[in-house]
């Protein structure tokens, strides 16, 4: 009997405290693991400088974050979704269906995607998109014909590259990074090698050809990494011939283990990305639910603090960590200050 009473009272306590929690006083953020380091740096500084509690930042990937963002409006949904890509039409619609209509889009800066290998490994120092395409695509152009990718070493299609087994570790499909990798590297390489043209000449529509360009070989030479960059780093560490895809910030924190390759002849640095010379970069975003501003204390202050010059500017802690700051930051700041929602100026 005693134990039944105990259980009952424990449940009662749980119920009481559940209703007490109705007033959430901290900002909740979830989404891209690429944005997570930046968001946590901002959240920490925010907690130090304001009287609001430190926001909670979770990761899980851009798509997962936006999915949770679009679950609805209310205190048990997140306030901000971090994303390493722009929100998709489909997601805006899903949001609208759940009642999340006014979304503020904030671009915080740019991030470079780099190709790196073991510091003491073979000389992978310069890549072109075409090299990556030839190494990793499911079908490539050989002697004017599209065939299933026959290459097993890098030197087979480009004599300048080391004669070692192809082994690449690329981000899995739930990562926003994958999309950029497909569009800016694989698709570009597909066009450069003439494979795209060949496919369209073979009677494929443009969309189908693009899809075929972005298909990655499945014979084990290319490995999808669903975890974080640390997992990619561990794979590279144990495989001297491995090539991994990393964020610029991650590479800059691990320069003692990794060496980076140029892409299209350009060295990836914050400067070359800011200047638009390095081809593989993408904007980073976060999305705010306007309905939560004024309800969740500190939400707007957090957003304004995030894009403030002293944080996201070229000399701020984010740039220091590896973010390429946005030249149009002032515009973003006024957008946040005015709570300008998406679609209002189109």
């Amino acid at each position: 009997m005693q134990s039944v009473k105990l259980a009952a009272s424990a449940l009662a306590i749980a119920a009481v405290s559940a209703s007490a929690a109705a007033a959430r006083d901290n900002v909740q953020v979830a989404g891209s693991s690429t944005v997570l380091p930046y968001a946590s740096i901002v959240a920490e500084a925010f907690g130090e400088n304001f009287d609001f509690p430190t926001p909670v930042v979770e990761s899980g990937g851009s798509s997962a974050g936006l999915k949770r963002f679009c679950e609805g409006v209310g205190e048990n949904t997140i306030d901000i979704a971090n994303a390493s890509r722009a929100i998709r039409e489909k997601e805006i619609k899903a949001c609208a269906d759940a009642g999340v209509t006014d979304i503020i889009e904030v671009r915080i800066g740019y991030d470079g995607i780099v190709f790196a290998s073991q510091k003491t490994g073979p000389e992978f120092t310069a890549f072109e998109p075409a090299d990556i395409y030839n190494a990793l695509a499911a079908e490539v152009l050989v002697d004017g014909e599209m065939t299933a990718n026959p290459y097993t070493t890098w030197a087979e299609f480009n004599g300048d590259l080391p004669d070692v087994e192809i082994a690449a570790f690329i981000p899995g499909t739930k990562h926003g990074t994958r999309e950029v990798f497909e569009e800016k590297v694989l698709l570009q390489g597909c066009e450069d090698t003439g494979a795209m043209e060949a496919m369209m000449a073979g009677g494929m529509s443009e969309d189908d050809a693009e899809g075929a360009c972005m298909a990655v070989r499945t014979d084990g030479k290319s490995v999808d990494i669903d975890g974080d960059y640390t997992e990619t780093l561990a794979r590279i560490d144990s495989n001297p011939n491995g090539i991994g895809v990393f964020g610029l910030a991650f590479y800059e924190n691990n320069t003692d283990k990794l060496k980076v390759a140029t892409m299209g002849g350009v060295q990836p640095t914050t400067e070359s990305i800011a200047a638009g010379e390095y081809p593989v970069s993408r904007p980073l975003f976060f999305y705010i639910k306007k309905a939560h501003i004024g309800v969740i204390p500190g939400l707007k202050e957090y957003a304004e603090f995030f894009v403030a010059d002293e944080i996201a500017g070229p000399d701020g802690p984010l740039a220091n960590y590896g973010l390429v700051s946005d030249p149009e930051l002032a515009e973003t700041q006024s957008k946040v200050a005015d709570e300008e929602v998406m679609g209002s100026n189109m």
Partner: peptide, 22 residues
């Protein structure tokens, strides 16, 4: 259930907040 991330930054204020706050 959202307990992995940049979360454990504030000490809870009391018993209730110990159970309820992130």
């Amino acid at each position: 259930i959202g307990m992995v991330g940049y979360i454990a930054t504030n000490y809870p204020d009391g018993i209730i907040s110990g159970f309820m706050s992130p």
